[in-house]
Nucleic acid binder design. Structure first.
Lengths: 197, 197
DNA sequence: TCTTTAATATAACAGTGTTATGTTCAATCG
DNA sequence: CGATTGAACATAACACTGTTATATTAAAGA
């Protein structure tokens, strides 16, 4: 990657981490990177291109959060660990999380490449959540199951980021949610008992 | 309410329903309502005020969606019906849903009054989801339980609105999710069996 | 009737993303 | 080596955004 391109992306990341998407203007990025505003358009496809890069970064954080050594762990332990990693990621990188889950400028829509990264991340999730299912489960069932877990976990994260969260001040949301996750995973395991991995 | 105020709010609603939040500019609202741009500031607190009204509208739709005659229905049936109502609402009023769940201009934050409406809606949800718990359950437990159900359902809706949803083309998401909801409700009921309502 | 207040209109300000117009500079080719 | 091509740059402009200062009109109260 070009040095100017890296400078711009670095500047964008800095501003994004500090002030979220609101701090990302084409001129502010250019100023921070020490280039002219037109540089954002020669090196990226304008602001859309910058957001795309951050979007991809977000889903790479996603994949990294649910990736670890699974040896000597039961399916349930793996799931809970992945969920915990996901939660931590969402907390440590709230800006990225808000960006990749649509809480953005509403004008931005991810490019095909960015979408492909999102689908790749979902694929990783399918692999992990499939540990709860029989080995011969169909892809459709595995996807349905992954979506189920994801919806549950993302729901908590999303509500935590919502104004309503002020109802639960000084609450550790992971602790608040962990019981529910464990209970739900047990229910899934019980449903497919006998044939599960 | 003033007639001019009603005209402005009506115009804002129209534009919002057609083109979402992207179609809502102060000038376009004023033009649609047949008033001068300054009217948005004399009758409302600028764009923030308009968004606040729509935000409140959104949570009123929320409350309306989970309100119905509960007679002759079991707790599980009531829950599933409320969830279905919530799903339908999210589909029929996607713009409102995206607005109240942070997928907005990122500059907007709800006013205290708007937040109060959101909390009132959560209160209704607590009442309904408490049907799964023993009658003498603490408020904290009832809230934890309501959050659990809400996170699950909202998670599905939020992912359905996400770009990743293209992985599941032409899928009825409620059908996709209903099994999971039923299973989870059963698990909650089993957990508190013997003392449940 | 006079005064005070509210609603309106016009125009401006500072900011946004984007682009047209020049200009500079390095690399490639005859 | 000189000429040409193309990419990167800078400046300024365009069309928009939310907001506000100023001025004008209409309505209501004393």
């Amino acid at each position: 990657m070009n040095i100017a391109k890296r400078k711009i992306l670095g500047a964008a990341s800095e501003l994004f981490l500090e002030g979220g998407i609101a701090a990302l203007s084409v001129r502010s990025i250019a100023k921070q990177a020490g280039v002219s505003t037109i540089g954002i358009y020669s090196h990226f496809k304008g602001k859309e291109g910058i957001l795309d890069e951050l979007y991809i970064q977000g889903f790479e954080l996603f994949m990294q959060a649910i990736k670890f050594d699974q040896e000597k762990l039961t399916a349930k332990e793996i799931l809970l660990k992945a969920i915990h990693g996901y939660f931590s990621m969402a907390q440590a990188h709230e800006g990225h999380y808000r960006l990749i889950f649509g809480e953005n400028d509403s004008r931005y829509t991810p490019s095909d490449e960015a979408k492909a990264t999102a689908e790749r991340a979902f694929g990783k999730l399918v692999k992990i959540t499939a540990l709860l299912l029989p080995k011969d489960a169909s892809l459709a069932l595995k996807q349905k199951n992954a979506l189920e877990i994801w919806a549950f976990v993302h729901g908590y994260v999303s509500l935590k980021h919502h104004a309503i969260a002020s109802i639960f001040p000084e609450t550790d949301w992971y602790v608040l949610a962990e019981d529910a996750f464990a209970m739900h995973i047990d229910a899934i395991l019980a449903k497919y008992a006998g044939a599960a991995n």
